[in-house]
Simulated scan of single mutants.
Amino acid sequence: MTTQLPAKIGFIGLGNMGRPMAANLARKGGKLVVRDADASRQAGFVQEFGSEDGGSAKAFAEAEVVVTMLPNGRIVRQALIESGIADALPRGSLIIDTSSAEPLLTRELAQDLADRGIGVVDAPVSGGMPKAIDGTLSIMLGADDDALAERAITVLSQMSARIFRTGALGTGHAMKALNNYVLGAGFVAAAEAYVVGEKFGLDPKLMVDVLNASSGRNVSTEAVFPSEVVTRRFRANFTFGLISKDVGIAAELADRLSIETPLLDEVFRALSEGGKELGMGADYSELVRIFERRADITHG
């Protein structure tokens, strides 16, 4: 397995997750050409890290690997094919899609890029901004070719050592969506229990303490409820738009596989309706507020 970084790496998408991931790659010696829909964000990264400006497709002509961190698979396709970048890339180059994208769209993209001699792997991440910053993300790597997977790991390992080889192309994106479904399901269950307890007169902090000392604990009760719900902060660390998108991908995959998933469907409905009511940019922890309102629970 090669351990030497490619001479030039493209990075597309410098948002909340992409920027710290690209920054870690640059700090580890990666020579980057970067692009973002926000020109000022792109220029700021170029200035801080001495990277090459990827404003033109030709700037990617020598990139052996391109990492994408974008909102969904359709935007990944636009950023690579409709932008002209795919035509500019050399044959034998590799796309590493770290976005939360649709598994079947990823496979379609790979088929289209194969005609250009470009390989594709999917490598979505989990852990949020804090872990993107400190380089401890969980990375789920799907690839049809072991050689492509090894090339991808050479780059991905500069952003995190926690890389899980999930199987064929698309399995990484599937795993990411299923992971966030389980996250959402745990939160919805905890939120319902929290509101029932509030209505009955249980102390909110006590409920969370008991859950976390008992078998009902999950990542939401351990992290989200103490910091966001009990404190009533509801900060936008993970928005309705993001989690409902991922849970929707899991629901669509189940449907395409003809698998009945009533709980998955209900969690998707709850998160989607929460986003419509409070705004897709609101933190998904605010779902508790909707449940409280329906239960006639008020807070000063």
Rank of each mutant, 00 (worst) to 15 (best):
L5R: 03
K8Q: 08
K8T: 11
F11K: 04
G13V: 03
L14H: 06
G18Y: 07
A22K: 08
N24G: 14
N24S: 15
L25D: 05
K28T: 06
G30M: 09
G30T: 01
K31S: 11
R41S: 13
Q42Y: 05
G44T: 06
V46I: 09
Q47R: 10
F49V: 04
D53P: 00
K58S: 12
A59K: 12
A59L: 07
T68E: 15
A79L: 01
E82D: 12
L89W: 06
L94S: 01
D97K: 03
D97V: 05
R107A: 13
E108K: 13
G119I: 03
V120M: 01
V121F: 02
S126F: 04
S126G: 02
T136I: 08
M140I: 10
D144W: 10
D144G: 15
D144A: 08
D145E: 13
A147M: 13
A147L: 15
T154I: 14
T154W: 04
L156A: 03
L156Y: 02
S160M: 08
G170H: 01
G172F: 01
G172T: 15
M175P: 01
M175Q: 07
K176S: 01
L178W: 04
V188S: 00
A190L: 02
E192L: 07
F200Q: 14
F200K: 05
L202W: 05
L202Y: 04
D209H: 03
N212C: 02
S215F: 13
V219P: 14
V229I: 07
V230D: 02
T231K: 06
R232G: 11
R233Q: 13
T239R: 15
L242C: 11
S244D: 11
S244L: 15
D246I: 03
D246N: 10
G248E: 03
R256T: 09
S258M: 15
I259W: 11
D265N: 10
K276N: 09
K276G: 12
E277Y: 09
D283A: 00
D283E: 08
L287Y: 05
L287W: 04
R289E: 07
I290H: 00
